[in-house]
Design a protein around this nucleic acid. Structure first.
Lengths: 104, 104
DNA sequence: GAGCTTGTTCGACTTCTGTCGAACAATGGT
DNA sequence: ACCATTGTTCGACAGAAGTCGAACAAGCTC
């Protein structure tokens, strides 16, 4: 079972943006940006595991994350370097803003 | 009839991203970024005027554009300064990429 | 191998979104 | 006043997206 991890250049901009335009997924991205690698199950998202799996798939297929299989777990990490290279400022802009989202 | 043009700070990040995550709207933003001010009717989008109106509304309510009423026309422009201040790099990242979107 | 753990996939359902034509509103010109 | 122009709003509709529980798959551990 191959994981679908496209080249970032081949992902339409709109797909990248759409992947980021969701609260749950933004939570995931924020968590990933704060650390290195996380097992899928470690995210506190307030949704079922089916839904979590769905969102991780969306992120992966939008080229935002990579997934490493290890035993029964899967470890996810942000493709930050590639993202920053192809969309300089995007991730920073989104993350800075989202962590400070409770401001007026 | 007041036009709804929210403070950018009060628009959720996800709403801004969602507004940009559409091909038609990206066309509009690209066109706006290339010039200054455009009447609604001047966009070549390949959609009905109802749809065009809808998309312009989405952009406006996401805080991305301002609209000036003049007679029977409405002139739209990008809120680029505010955008760049609040989301440095976002617009550039998106626009650079989208104009080069036909690459491999 | 039985059973547990970790994730994915499969319907099913609901809500959201893009799209359109038609009707409406507001303005300007003749 | 009438009509044309420019946009918006109103249903209506189809397709996409988020959500869930349940079933399934793949590895571990005993």
């Amino acid at each position: 079972m191959e994981l679908e991890e496209p080249e970032l250049r081949e992902v339409p901009v709109t797909a990248v943006l759409a992947a980021l335009a969701d609260d749950v997924r933004l939570q995931i991205v924020r968590a990933l940006a704060a650390g290195d690698e996380y097992a899928c199950g470690t995210f506190e998202l307030g949704v079922s595991k089916a839904t979590r799996s769905h969102h991780l798939k969306v992120l992966r297929e939008a080229g935002l994350t990579r997934t490493r299989v290890a035993g029964t777990s899967r470890y996810v990490r942000l493709r930050r370097d590639e993202l920053d290279k192809l969309y300089p400022g995007l991730l920073d802009a989104v993350l800075t803003r989202s962590t400070a989202a409770s401001n007026t």
